[in-house]
Design a protein around this nucleic acid. Structure first.
Lengths: 337, 337
DNA sequence: GTATTTGCTTTAATCGTTTAAAGTATTACA
DNA sequence: TGTAATACTTTAAACGATTAAAGCAAATAC
């Protein structure tokens, strides 16, 4: 079946393509198209099942109505969640989303953003990978509208939607203190990512402000590529020594999963032997024998905000926004009271 | 910073745009461009950091090098897995993937495919939702190349990549028989989806061939929107009566999760109280106290095959393929021996 | 009776590429 | 010397839409 073009409708009705374009783009009034012709055109479009060629449209208008999204790793629950939220909001505003995953690799990240820009996306929503600072600067110079999500670089002045990671961690520790814990440990990733460093800072400050005991073995940074091995050691050291920790806060959902698995293997029971708190939730928690207390990122709101800001930028409204969201605290049964 | 066009390179070097186009598209030899000019053009392209406008390119060549993918529900592990596989293979062949989730809604499914077709994707990979048969027929008539994955309609002759669901279920039951189970139950969804009905058929035939006891309460179909409630009843009935089932096979990963949760709530221990087998794996299994034996779909191979077939179709190689894959059996510790 | 306005429609350039087809030197050969 | 072949290069139409600008009747103004 041959594709129906604007020209075909014009021919069918017996007018020029200009009229057809005006009518189908809702400019019938403005361009003073006669009611008669307008009606005929609309009918013909339906009858012939006209589907405009978006590529031609885009070339002419220089707008693709497409948003490029680069997430850090599609396997993260955060990624699927934020993707969903962004897609929903984008659809509401009549944008399509093309996305890719950088798999936490700076080079892949650059490549991906370039591919998306070449495909003439109107703007980008990015969860930048580690070491992608340079690429962000380039992007900024190129004038492509973009918004960072979740992660940002304190040295670059960009639009972003982020979590108040410092506060969230501080609050989590405070909750543990309030529920009677005194020897609180924290397991994070070995990273240069600012948002994770902020979690470190939150932990440290909270310990200090609450005058809690600190212990180098209670604050661990695991190598992202060796979580399993490093976790084995880290959890053992938390518990085995003469001075065991009484609560552990995991900095990411993946760490929580790895940690809980390890506790299972060691026969450690939660919360009897140690209390557990997690940053973010994982599907895997569903089948753990006890619900895990955690800080929940408001993904829907964050995604929505990111699209809002981006669309404003695309429409040349000189938005400049750096939004911080708070986590919700979801109480489980993984902390002894 | 202004975008660099083909024209700019031409001007910079002092030749026509045609030459530039030939060189940058690897037709320098074929079109007998002088080595001198070819070199100059290549240098200029790099120097000016030329990025071709894909939209213009697509309009002219009528190829977007884009594949549209519609999955049934992005929250399924199957969906993220197959998406990943498809993206990887697509990238290898220099295609971009645009995707959307129909959320198991036929109307949304139609809408999405239309959007993708309007965006001039070169072809589609589809996991059709229930009741989308009509849309598939329309698509077929329109001549758009497409491949179905996971699900297909026995009454429509399309290209597809699927699982041999009948055999997989038959084999799963046979395994349970071999390991000494005699009262095998099966929990599936209430559905008209062919691939799930095939699982029913596999279960029934296996029971018959092995001369096993059948029992209406051992074969349940839960309403997709009410899995939790229905599961509560179904699992209770499996176990409470005078004649309890000794093994249960779940037809999907989501059913497995819901079922295992319910077993947890009832205090049923796996595999002591009942053996469990699952179709497909879920991340959530990670934190269950025992590894779940399951049939694993070869997502990578399926995704790869789907892209292969689609690309052939796009290149007008009159492929006609209906591929079936076998599941791998992953032994866990959820079945009593 | 001519000029102007109104109401509506068409013409044609444009977006940034690709690519037949035509153009133009240079060399080869009779 | 004239013609043909060779080796390049340029011209310009196309892809399918949008949209200023121009065109053209009929109605109104003076």
């Amino acid at each position: 079946m041959k594709k129906v073009l604007l020209k075909d409708i014009a021919q069918h009705v017996g007018v020029s393509t200009a009229l057809v374009s005006y009518v189908l783009n809702g400019q019938a009034e403005e361009k003073q198209v006669s009611k008669e012709n307008a009606e005929k055109i609309r009918l013909a479009a339906i009858e012939l099942n006209y589907q405009p060629n978006q590529v031609a449209k885009s070339l002419r208008t220089q707008k693709t109505h497409t948003i490029g999204l680069v997430v850090a790793d599609i396997n993260y629950r955060f990624s699927t969640g934020i993707t969903r939220a962004i897609e929903a909001e984008a659809k509401r505003r009549n944008f399509t989303v093309i996305y890719g995953s950088s798999d936490e690799d700076a080079q892949k990240f650059s490549q991906l953003t370039n591919v998306l820009v070449n495909r003439q996306v109107d703007g980008l929503i990015l969860v930048p990978s580690e070491d992608s600072e340079e690429q962000i600067v380039l992007l900024q110079q190129s004038g492509t509208p973009f918004v960072l999500v979740d992660r940002y670089f304190p040295n670059i002045d960009t639009n972003y939607v982020a979590l108040d990671n410092y506060q969230a961690t501080y609050d989590a520790v405070s909750y543990l203190v309030k529920t009677g814990h005194k020897k609180i440990s924290f397991i994070n990733l070995e990273t240069s990512l600012f948002h994770l460093l902020e979690r470190d800072r939150g932990y440290r400050d909270a310990l200090k402000d609450h005058h809690l005991e600190t212990n180098p073995e209670w604050m661990r940074h695991l190598r992202p590529q060796h979580i399993k091995e490093d976790m084995e050691l880290a959890t053992r050291q938390l518990l085995e020594r003469g001075n065991p920790s009484d609560a552990v806060l995991f900095a990411t959902d993946r760490l929580s999963i790895a940690g809980l698995k390890q506790f299972n293997d060691y026969g450690i029971r939660i919360p009897k032997d140690i209390s557990v708190m997690s940053f973010d939730e994982a599907d895997a928690f569903d089948l753990f024998y006890c619900p895990i207390s955690h800080s929940r990122q408001p993904l829907e709101k964050m995604g929505e905000a990111a699209v809002d800001i981006l669309v404003d930028l695309i429409n040349k409204e000189n938005t400049h926004k750096q939004l911080y969201f708070r986590t919700d605290f979801i109480a489980g049964k993984s902390c002894r009271e």
